[in-house]
Nucleic acid binder design. Structure first.
Length: 609
DNA sequence: CACACCATGACGGGCGTG
DNA sequence: CACGCCCGTCATGGTGTG
């Protein structure tokens, strides 16, 4: 019914309407609703105490009298404006349901130790250490969690009525589901704890499992973020989920189908320039529809469940998994979550060479017939050692032109593992930094000089985008923004997105770039100057310091962001990490949540103006 | 000598595929 | 089930600098 709004390929992109806000409030279709509310708090926090009070005190008193808390009322008024009393009430009711569902008493002990709160504590701590009082967002989240206003709201009596006829274990299942746990989690817990386990035991088990897996932060409140507006709807929804789950369980298709997204094979996403079978149509969830456009990237082969979480947070947009081996001579399997149109994409020209032979012609002469590689493996942050290439040379020299199979196998194994190429008779070598630059689509010497060490060059390059791949996805912006764009670039690294847009011929008007590494910032600044950019480049070091106030300042000065790009750290996701592949909650990779946080704030600000 | 910076090499396992 | 892949981390030693 609202397929026009969501599905029709942005044919009439008109995101700057003022009534977006109402639509967003009336038809929340995902967890984004709660998240938006949290972010909303940030935006309004500064004003709520100063401006929201006196001017509309009647309205305030009205809702106070109904038993809602000041905080919620401020939030609701800010979001709906003062005029529309009905939608304010709607929002207040929604908030109340959210909070009731959020913090059932039995779970309190779990909540205290949840990874989410630990993370928040860490964040707050780091804010304090930095001497920056930029933690208003974190505080607001904590407030929302701890300060449940449920004394003013009583709901949930329907459950008893609706479920009284169910068998005991299903009742428990439903209780857990109503607390916000997934049916799958609840079921697993019941299997482990036995049929007689109490709800408290079950929730403890789930919490323990969650912490052990250190997966899915925000787990406790992510399920309540699913469609719900009043208590009854939520219960019905869970009853419905239960039925679906029972059906699946009967059919025995639960374990495979319900867990995780499947990687496409071949990994070409919605299509690549050289493939004729290009998908040009998809339906985005309502909550994902901009502005702004967003583009998020990370490694495709992350631990199980990571992409489900990422996708859920990014408004339920399904990731587009693409291997850059279809764009250049090296593999690079990545997932991209974005709300860009996918029709009429075009590649950067000339198309880069797509075999090692073409990309590195000098290696052709030395490439043995028994090395069948035509593509390189993923370019990583470290390279093979001299000692290894020496061992390989010595191993080969003993055998002349036709080494025995076991030697071939050893050499090939090492070549694949370290991305070695043939540079002389019996000589293999790791790629030079400028070769990596070329393969990734950067200008030659992009990372060279300016004080960066060779080791750090490899590291910066290994952490970067493949420019042609990203440019192909971003190419649709050229027609939409003929006069250029304002971009927020998070975790910019060496500026893959900036380079991609520049090579597409899309003018960069204002770029706010957040990057922790000084060396990388220097690289981007040099590139910016060398390419005679006409726009403004604003550099920040720390995403955690980028709060609602700063964002409002930026957006106020040049009118909002058209695009938010970011590839958050993959350290704790990548397969090469033997030490701390901790998943999305890892020390570095949890910065994904900052991408989401910032995107959501910008989204709120854009939709309120 | 203390210190910062840089290069080097040893270190498996989860997960997807055929 | 065997195989192949993977935006990495850490300790250590060398080198340069004051």
């Amino acid at each position: 019914m609202d397929a026009n709004a969501s599905g029709e390929e942005y044919e009439n992109i008109d995101w700057n309407t003022d009534d977006e806000l109402e639509i967003q409030n009336i038809a929340p279709s995902s967890h984004a609703t709660l998240a938006s509310l949290n972010a909303q708090t940030v935006v309004s926090n500064g004003e709520a105490s100063s401006s929201a009070g006196p001017s509309n005190s009647n309205l305030f008193q009205h809702f106070l009298g109904m038993g809602f808390s000041e905080q919620l009322i401020a939030k609701a008024i800010k979001e709906n404006g003062e005029a529309n009393t009905e939608s304010i009430l709607e929002s207040l009711l929604t908030y109340s349901v959210l909070e009731v569902e959020d913090s059932p008493d039995e779970l309190n002990s779990c909540h205290l130790n949840s990874p989410q709160q630990q993370q928040q504590q860490q964040q707050q701590q780091s804010c304090v250490e930095n001497g920056e009082l930029s933690s208003d967002y974190d505080e607001s989240v904590c407030d929302d969690l701890s300060e449940s206003d449920d004394s003013s709201w009583s709901g949930g009596s329907e459950v008893a009525n609706n479920t009284s006829s169910l068998p005991k274990h299903e009742k428990s299942l439903l209780s857990l589901a109503n607390m916000g746990y997934s049916i799958e989690e609840a079921s697993a817990a019941m299997e482990r704890c036995g049929p007689e386990a109490s709800i408290v035991e079950l929730t403890d088990f789930i919490c323990a499992a969650q912490m052990a897996k250190t997966e899915a932060v925000f787990f406790e409140d992510e399920k309540p973020k699913l469609p719900l507006r009043v208590n009854g709807d939520f219960k019905k929804r869970k009853l419905y989920d239960l039925e679906i789950w029972k059906t699946k369980k009967r059919k025995g298709i639960l374990s495979e189908e319900d867990e995780g997204l499947r990687l496409p094979n071949p990994m070409i996403g919605f299509g690549v320039p050289t493939d004729t079978h290009v998908i040009t149509h998809r339906v985005l969830p309502d909550a994902a529809i901009g502005p702004p456009f967003f583009y998020y990237e990370n490694v495709a082969l992350a631990p199980k469940g990571v992409w489900d979480t990422i996708s859920r947070f990014l408004y339920d947009v399904e990731p587009e998994f693409v291997d850059s081996k279809y764009f250049c001579a090296a593999a690079r399997k990545r997932g991209y979550v974005h709300n860009l149109p996918i029709k009429n994409r075009f590649p950067l020209l000339p198309l880069p060479p797509r075999t090692v032979n073409d990309a590195l012609p000098l290696t052709k002469r030395w490439w043995p017939e028994w090395d069948k590689r035509t593509k390189l493996n993923c370019l990583q942050t470290v390279i093979g050692s001299a000692k290894l290439t020496d061992r390989i040379r010595k191993a080969l020299e003993k055998w002349g032109d036709n080494p025995p199979v076991h030697v071939q196998k050893f050499v090939l194994e090492q070549c694949r593992k370290w991305n070695l190429v043939w540079v002389g008779k019996n000589k293999v070598a790791p790629l030079e930094p400028d070769e990596v630059e070329m393969l990734l689509g950067f200008p030659r010497n992009h990372t060279r000089g300016g004080g960066i060490s060779r080791t750090d060059r490899y590291k910066s390059l290994g952490n970067s985008f493949q420019v042609d791949t990203v440019a192909y996805h971003l190419s649709v912006l050229k027609d939409i923004f003929p006069n250029g764009i304002n971009m927020l670039s998070l975790f910019s690294g060496i500026g893959g997105a900036e380079v991609a847009l520049h090579r597409l011929g899309i003018p960069l008007k204002n770029v706010v770039s957040v990057e922790i590494s000084e060396a990388n910032r220097d690289i981007v600044r040099s590139w910016w100057e060398q390419t005679n950019q006409k726009g403004n480049l604003i550099h920040l070091a720390d995403v955690q310091q980028l709060n609602g106030d700063r964002l409002e300042q930026f957006m106020g000065s040049f009118g909002g962001f058209d695009l938010i790009v970011g590839g958050s750290p993959c350290n704790n996701l990548a397969g090469s990490n033997r030490v701390s592949r901790d998943g999305l909650e890892g020390e570095h990779s949890s910065l994904f949540y900052d991408y989401f946080r910032i995107l959501d704030i910008v989204k709120c600000i854009m939709n309120n103006k």
